[in-house]
Design a protein around this nucleic acid. Structure first.
Lengths: 172, 172
DNA sequence: GTTGTTGCAAATTGTTTGCACTGGT
DNA sequence: ACCAGTGCAAACAATTTGCAACAAC
């Protein structure tokens, strides 16, 4: 999306600083995340990498995501149903995520949305909330509307407002 | 915890009303959840059932949790890292959950904690928040304190304040 | 040249499913 | 007696790991 080369170069520098290396699989993963500009599931990263660099093995994508997470370049968000989404850290700064339980779309939210709640939880329970690593769950506007219309939207094609997919069979 | 017999009887009635049956595995799962009075992972339910009723097969626990979920008697909460916790529905009424990312303890929270946020999300984004199905993440009081003391708590033995365990190796 | 990383295949872990049989009603 | 539900084993899916070959530095 942005200049991908700058990203690759800066990450390469960070890697070298830790005695690690910039390799083809890592470039491919970074490029995939950068181009999507959104939140990708593991499977989606694997798919994107497979398309751009077929020789890169699945296992390398797993290992790369771990390595880049350790570096701090990549972060993950836990979605409902055990799914996890990955995205570049730098992108838009820290923000919250909300996922529609029906269509799976992920929506970004300002990260001060829960600051008042966080303050209250800290005050009353001593719990230090970190809301960015888990997506809030609910119904997006579109799905809420169609649900009001008498459940008729049961079989609509999922809308991937943020380039996301979660073909989970269960109904929660 | 409460009178387990009343629970079993009422669920038996609900099952029969749907043409389904009360069986030994279902009794075992209900009893396990009832006695723990907290949130159990799949593995913990399997373990508890295995202890009380060794003849009950693992697969039946899976199927039973699905059946009881369909009945509405059991609910699940999605925790970070893909884990899922199960609990009886009736217990304390709807409530939110917060999980400590370090020790894994789950804390119940009043379910109106996010009502103001939910109102705002609905107003500004049309998103209908349902906060009870996903646990908020953060640091509990104990772990937050030890982290302030210079990271020294890195290797403490996990405290299961709520009868919970999550032996995840990753550091997030 | 050294050694971090990869591709691959096998091992592991967690969950689901087909089927004959058991047990609740 | 009927048939929902079970135990079991095999299928399946997702992720991890051991290791020899490779390539970034």
């Amino acid at each position: 999306m942005n200049d991908g080369t700058a990203l690759l170069d800066s990450v390469a520098a960070m890697l070298r600083a830790k005695g690690e290396r910039m390799t083809a699989p890592r470039r491919a993963v970074l490029t995939a995340l950068s181009e999507s500009a959104g939140h990708l599931s593991m499977e989606e990263v694997v798919a994107a990498v497979a398309e751009a660099a077929p020789s890169v093995h699945r296992a390398s994508v797993y290992r790369t995501l771990v390595a880049l997470s350790d570096l701090g370049v990549v972060q993950h968000v836990h979605l409902g149903h055990g799914a996890t989404a990955y995205h570049l850290t730098g992108a838009d700064g820290p923000h919250l995520h909300a996922q529609c339980r029906r269509c799976g779309a992920i929506q970004d939210l300002p990260n001060d949305l829960l600051s008042e709640v966080a303050r209250r939880m800290d005050a009353t329970h001593g719990f230090e909330l970190d809301a960015t690593h888990v997506a809030l769950s609910g119904l997006c506007a579109a799905c809420a509307a169609s649900e009001d219309d008498g459940e008729a939207a049961e079989a609509i094609t999922p809308v991937h407002r943020h380039g996301h997919s979660h073909p989970h069979p269960h109904s929660h």
